[in-house]
Design a binder for these strands. Sequence first.
DNA 1: GACTTATATTAGTTTGGATTGATATTAAGA
DNA 2: TCTTAATATCAATCCAAACTAATATAAGTC
Lengths: 120, 120
Amino acid sequence: MHVFEVLADPVRRRILEQLAHGEMASGEVVELIGAEFGITQAAVSQHLKVLRESGFATVRAEAQRRLYSVDVAGLRAVDAWIGQFRNFWEPKLDALATEIARGKRERRNAPMTKRSGKRA
Amino acid sequence: MHVFEVLADPVRRRILEQLAHGEMASGEVVELIGAEFGITQAAVSQHLKVLRESGFATVRAEAQRRLYSVDVAGLRAVDAWIGQFRNFWEPKLDALATEIARGKRERRNAPMTKRSGKRA
DNA sequence: GACTTATATTAGTTTGGATTGATATTAAGA
DNA sequence: TCTTAATATCAATCCAAACTAATATAAGTC
């Protein structure tokens, strides 16, 4: 399932927002989300499965409990796609922000050749 | 229609990627996307409608043509939601990057009161 | 082992959105 | 005005995904 399809569902978005506050057991999610959306345990469990399988959440077992937390993989993928367009609304910061975000790896030790003025 | 539902469709995502290269007439989009996905003019037109109405594209008329371009409103909304989680994968850059991205508006002239050390 | 608690899975039903074919709208050109 | 071109809209069909009820699995407790 594509990352954007995953986030297209309001229940899944809400679950992620909750997980952002920290690890939660499946049961806690069921209680919260179930009440908020009026859906059953089965439904919530299925949403958690989708989040797992699409890289938005990870699980660890503790006895019978399953503790869920945010997995950044999915979120990064979304951010990467949006990144294609970021220069549309952040044109000024672009040069500087990129420089900083990328850790200045590139330019750092570029010996300044004749054609290093501008690349496309 | 919610922003994530809009981007959940592969056809709409592809249309946006094309628009990112610059303004396109509806007919051009139909030709390109229609060929790529094997769908009709009606289908493409309806996708364009969704993109319009959800703030991902704008149109201007020129004779019978409708020229579409990227509207950042929708993309910003997506970026804002993802922003909730950005500190999950950019913890180090957080302070500095935020400072720069926000234009240092906040701190700049904050007179440093007693309780300005940390806010929850 | 029987029972309970926590969670996942399965099968079947329902529903919203994507698509098509047909038609409407709008502007230009003869 | 009649015709062609470009695009949008409508009604009907179809399908995938969300949901429920029921059941399965697995780990604690008595």
